[in-house]
Design a protein around this nucleic acid. Structure first.
Length: 289
DNA sequence: TGACAATACTTTCGTCTCCT
DNA sequence: AGGAGACGAAAGTATTGTCA
């Protein structure tokens, strides 16, 4: 199963949508579309095929068809079938990735500044069962009802309602992190951007993140299995390995570069983590060339 | 989510040995 | 000789367990 991943903004653009039906014995036409086609089955089953993969899209399920790929019904409906359909396009490029577990820390790609917008990944599994079906159908019914109005304001509103439907699908697909996971994500982000600082302490991190230091450690341990200190050490050693591999910096400089001021301690920590000393690690690289 | 005490772990420092 | 690593002791800091 695949997932469509697209960087936003710019946001996807609604083209046309509505509610359609196939009588028993009819099937979806076969074609190659140049836009995305979202099908949400309200009643019955749609027997669809895309790139040789068959999907029996049942009541309360959806299928997202990708542009440039041949799709169509592989079999006639066995009962009267109703569905919502939405055609849209993406202003930028998109990626197709295998289905795996995403959480909200995967979504935010760049924090906003005072002059630049934040960037996000919109993650949409191509096929799935809708958990809160009533909510999605309410959104799609509204999208459909706006077709009846000819006013430009309502047509513009359709863009917002359409985007809400995509966000809904994303929200269903992406697991909500527990509060501990959210805190642990903050800690990881903080450690990644401050690991070079030799005076980095959990206390200082706690002051910045506005949580009690005990709580930060607990959340990290529960989520990653490592305390902030253990995580930091592993991250520092990983960065040190990169430096040993790609630069000619002496060990003291590498240690300082990853936030460890004591060369001796750095060597011991490296040996403990990697099983070899930094010098041996570097010589392995040289011999490997 | 915070506070606290006990415990565990990390870091620093000084010194020594080994290797090139 | 100088760089790199090992080791022990002490100090500092983080974690854990428990309670609220």
């Amino acid at each position: 199963m695949k997932t469509i991943k697209v960087r936003v903004p710019p946001v996807p653009v609604f083209i046309k949508g509505g509610k359609g039906s196939f009588r028993k014995g009819r099937k979806h036409l076969s074609r190659t579309f140049e836009v995305f086609d979202l099908l949400v089955v309200h009643k019955g089953t749609l027997y669809m095929e895309e790139e040789g993969i068959r999907y029996d899209v049942k009541e309360g399920e959806y299928l997202l068809l990708v542009p440039g790929v041949f799709h169509g019904g592989y079999r006639a409906c066995t009962e009267d079938t109703e569905m919502y359909w939405v055609h849209f396009r993406l202003p930028g490029s998109f990626e197709i990735v295998p289905n795996c577990s995403f959480d909200w820390s995967d979504i935010l790609k760049k924090e906003s500044t005072y002059t630049e917008e934040a960037e996000f990944d919109l993650i949409l599994p191509a096929y799935g069962k809708i958990k809160n079906r009533a909510r999605l159908e309410t959104i799609l019914a509204r999208l459909n009802s706006l077709n009846l109005s000819g006013s430009p304001a309502d047509q513009l509103m359709q863009q917002a309602v359409f985007f809400e439907s995509l966000l809904f699908l994303q929200r269903e697909a992406v697991r909500l992190p527990t509060s501990a996971e959210q805190v642990a994500n903050d800690v990881v982000r903080f450690l990644h951007s401050h690991y070079r600082e030799t005076d980095l302490t959990v206390e200082r991190m706690a002051k910045v993140l506005l949580y009690h230091a005990d709580y930060l450690s607990r959340c990290m341990k529960r989520t990653t299995g490592l305390t902030p200190g253990q995580y930091l050490n592993r991250y520092r050693i990983e960065r040190a390995k990169e430096l040993l591999n790609t630069t000619e910096l002496d060990l003291g400089a590498v240690a300082v570069e990853v936030g460890i001021s004591d060369r001796s301690y750095f060597s011991r920590l490296f040996k403990k983590t990697e099983g070899v000393t930094p010098t041996a690690f570097r010589s392995l690289r040289i011999r490997g060339r």
